[in-house]
């Protein structure tokens, strides 16, 4: 007699816990062949609000971790993903990717994390500096995280784009609320499970699933989110920039209508980190 399999209820990873939407709503997810796969939580603006609260709580502690420690934690996350790469690849394949493409996307995602794991203790040395001012003062510019970053992922590359957008943000001490690909949310669900077993403190990365059209306005208008990064179409970009003006939010969006080569190494590195930090300059007199 064959054993009845236990099906997994997909949940979102928010504040270090697995949640269903506060609304209780779900939407069925079908695989590429049209077969029912699972019910995906349809997060609401309240879920986003709760995620922001969680991120706000986690933020100061995460920003204060040493650069070395943040690097190790990112590396640990990569280790978790490597160990469960098959599961991630399967999750990607639900959206219709071939096995080879899915494997490639997982590998690229892991490489990208490793890349950023090595950035945590270096970007400061390249972005900050001492400024030779013309008065008897010691003057230096350092970077600081912006705070809570809203990440809007594209529909494609559901794991690699997500990692590409999250990794630079947490590398430099920000916390993130990311909205997963609406059509391919499952890799984000699986990633959440890996985040939970990595050493990343709860609340640093929060992953929401649901309808973009419902959530984008709240991403745009929530004044505690200090920046929005990711991918958006023309209407969304306008909507976001309009609402972002109210709290002078930083907006850095790629165009959904322009194709993005997600595996490209041009999408990773120092510039991506720089978009998500603030520069702080400190002056002090030199005297005895």
């Amino acid at each position: 007699m064959s054993r009845l399999p236990i099906t997994k209820t997909p949940k979102c990873y928010v504040g270090g816990a697995f949640i269903r939407s506060e609304s209780g709503r779900v939407a069925p997810l079908h695989d590429a062949r049209g077969a029912f796969f699972a019910n995906i939580p349809q997060c609401t603006r309240k879920d986003l609000r709760n995620a922001v609260e969680a991120a706000a709580k986690a933020g100061p502690g995460w920003a204060k971790r040493s650069a070395y420690n943040r690097g190790q934690i990112l590396y640990r996350l990569a280790e978790m993903m490597e160990a469960r790469s098959a599961e991630l690849a399967e999750a990607i394949q639900i959206g219709g990717s071939t096995k080879a493409d899915a494997n490639h996307e997982v590998a690229s995602s892991i490489e990208r994390l490793i890349h950023y794991a090595g950035w945590t203790d270096k970007y400061e040395q390249l972005l900050g500096n001492v400024n030779p001012v013309a008065s008897p003062h010691f003057n230096f510019t350092v970077t600081e995280p912006m705070g809570i970053i809203g990440v809007l992922t594209p529909e494609e590359a559901p794991l690699l784009a997500l990692i590409t957008l999250i990794a630079p943000a947490i590398t430099c001490g920000n916390t993130v609320i990311a909205l997963a690909s609406e059509s391919q949310p499952y890799p984000a669900i699986v990633l959440g499970e890996m985040l939970a077993t990595s050493d990343l403190p709860g609340g640093v990365v929060n992953l929401l699933t649901g309808q973009r059209s419902e959530l984008v306005p709240t991403f745009a208008s929530h004044t505690h989110l200090r920046a929005i990064s990711g991918v958006a179409n023309a209407d969304e970009r306008k909507e976001i920039r309009l609402a972002a003006a109210d709290s002078v939010k930083r907006v850095n969006l790629r165009k959904a209508e322009d194709p993005t080569d997600w595996p490209s190494p041009k999408l990773q590195g120092l510039s991506a980190i720089r978009e998500l930090i603030e520069f702080k300059t400190t002056w002090h007199p030199i005297g005895a």
Partner: peptide, 10 residues
């Protein structure tokens, strides 16, 4: 100190 400015200082 306060209100110090310099071209080299962001």
């Amino acid at each position: 100190t306060y209100n110090k400015f310099d071209p080299t200082s962001p």
